[in-house]
Amino acid sequence: MKRKINLLPFAIITGFVLLINWYVLSGIETLTSSSWLSPIFWGFLIFILASLAYSIQRMRNNGMDIFFKITTHTFLVLMTSELIFILILMIGDGYRLITGGSRSVYWVEFGLALFFITILIFLYGIIKGKYAYRIIKHTLFFDELPEQFDGFLITQISDVHAGSFKNAKAVQKGIDLIKAQNSDLFVFTGDLVNNKAEEIVPWMGHFSQVKARHGQFSILGNHDYGDYIKWETEAAKQANLEALKKHHAEMGYRLLLDEHVRIEKNGQHIILAGVENWGIGFGERGDLKKALQEVNPDDFKVLLSHDPTHWDAEVKKWPSKIQLTLSGHTHGMQFGIEAFGIKWSPVKYRYAHWAGITSANGRYLNINRGFGFLGFSGRVGIWPEITVIELKKTRR
């Protein structure tokens, strides 16, 4: 018996796209009366939609191949640019309704200029932006920090998604930036791969270059478990996870699986704990109680937990104070704006806090924007991040 396909979502999306493009065309027609404009415009749109539909159908057998990526990225860039154009056009039309005049070509020209600028920005994000690594530094003060750890530097990266990388030279530039920080501790907070352990193999030589005086530590993210692809058997899925754990060790990373280690310095110590992925909607595997078993409640603690929803749901109100939690997962949606005092990304509608430092109950959370990329093969406004956190003791 064939499974029925629900065509309603497809019909709604198609109707929405057609409505948007009708309005776009009405704006362009303000500038020209050419009889060729309408058939060329609609012919191009039908070609884009047909290619997208075909690539989605084809994906079931071929996966997300180059044709799928080209069609989906073209559609994404085109729709985003059109929405920018429409926003300007609506402002102009609103002004026209108030004043009673005709549609102004100046609003249309301004909208078209932003349309093409948006396309250029997206092209930069796809070609260069996804490898435009930047260092973000934070200095955090703690009453409980042992004296010997005053000035202690932690470098954090997250969400490598090695299966998405294509440019070895660009990735090496990111590795060189990490190495240049000369930090005391290096941590990786999950999602080493998209789905399969084999994805990291070509890049192990890069990430194994990272060294820190007190070691390199890592945790798993939701993508590392292989939950998002079909496996022939459960045993094959488990074997993939075991291979990935082995690759962590081969790169020189101590993988923390609901456990902790003591970081010693001149007779004093802090606790570094790591949990398996715990995230609302993404699997609640981690066991924080197990990770902190036999830890003195008064110890200074740094926790690695991939999904920031864990901090909101459990960590920030844990009975023994966890002073600093390091997460990733959101990627900042790889799209947004962080400039001119503005910090915005569509991901804010899923995560109230989606990047950088926040605090509650005297505890800090840092969400790294991610080193790699997934889905959208680019970054626009939300650039790949290497975080450097300096721990400082509060002076009274």
Score class of each variant (00 low, 15 high):
Ala132Val: 01
Tyr124Lys: 01
Phe110Thr: 11
Arg103Cys: 02
Lys130Met: 06
Pro202Arg: 01
Asp184Arg: 06
Ile154Leu: 01
Ala132Ile: 05
Asp176Arg: 14
Asn182Trp: 04
Arg134Gly: 13
Tyr133Phe: 14
Thr139Val: 14
Lys179Asp: 07
Gly174Met: 06
Leu192Ile: 01
Phe149Asp: 09
Gln148Lys: 14
Tyr124Phe: 10
Val201Arg: 15
Ser104Met: 11
Ile200Gly: 01
Phe141Met: 12
His138Ile: 00
Leu145Ser: 03
Arg103Gln: 13
Glu198Phe: 10
Asp159His: 06
Tyr124Gly: 03
Gly129Thr: 05
Lys211Asn: 13
Val160Phe: 06
Phe142Trp: 13
Lys196Ala: 04
Gly163Lys: 11
Gly151Ala: 11
His206Thr: 00
Leu112Gly: 09
Gln156His: 03
Leu120Gly: 12
Glu147Ser: 01
Tyr106Trp: 15
Leu140Asn: 00
Thr139Met: 10
His161Thr: 00
Val187Lys: 03
Tyr133Val: 02
Phe116Trp: 10
Ile178Glu: 06
Ser164Trp: 00
Val210Tyr: 09
Asp150Ile: 02
Gly205Glu: 05
Ser183Ala: 14
Leu185Gln: 07
Asp159Ala: 02
Ile119Trp: 09
Ala170Trp: 05
Leu123His: 07
Gly151Ser: 10
His161Trp: 10
Gln181Ile: 02
Trp107Ala: 08
Gly129Ser: 07
Ala180Arg: 13
Leu145Asn: 04
Ile178Ser: 04
Gly125Met: 07
Ser102Met: 09
Asp184Pro: 11
Glu199Asn: 04
Glu144Lys: 15
Thr139Leu: 07
Glu147Gln: 11
Phe186Trp: 07
Ala170Cys: 07
Leu123Asp: 09
Ile135Asn: 06
Leu145Arg: 10
Gly125Leu: 03
Val210Lys: 14
Leu123Tyr: 09
Ile126Cys: 06
Ile126Gln: 03
Leu123Asn: 03
Phe115Leu: 14
Arg103Ala: 12
Arg103Ile: 10
Met204Pro: 11
Ile121Val: 08
Phe141Pro: 09
Pro202Glu: 05
Asp184Lys: 07
Ile157Gly: 11
Val187Ser: 05
Leu153Val: 08
Ala168Val: 00
Ile117Leu: 15
Ala162Met: 03
Gly163Tyr: 04
Lys169Asp: 03
Ala168Arg: 12
Ala162Asn: 01
Ser104Glu: 12
Leu114Arg: 07
Phe122Leu: 12
Asn167Gly: 00
Trp203Asp: 00
Ser102Arg: 15
Gly151Met: 07
Leu177Arg: 12
Leu185Ile: 04
Glu147Tyr: 01
Val105Asn: 14
Glu109Thr: 13
Arg134Glu: 13
Phe116Gln: 09
Ser183Asp: 04
Arg134Asp: 11
Val160Glu: 00
Phe141Trp: 13
Lys128Asn: 08
Ala170Tyr: 14
Pro202Phe: 02
Phe110Ala: 14
Thr155Cys: 10
Ala180Ser: 15
Lys211Ile: 00
Gly111Ile: 03
Lys169Gln: 10
Asp159Cys: 09
Glu147Ala: 06
Leu192Ser: 01
Phe116Gly: 03
Val201Asp: 09
Leu177Ala: 09
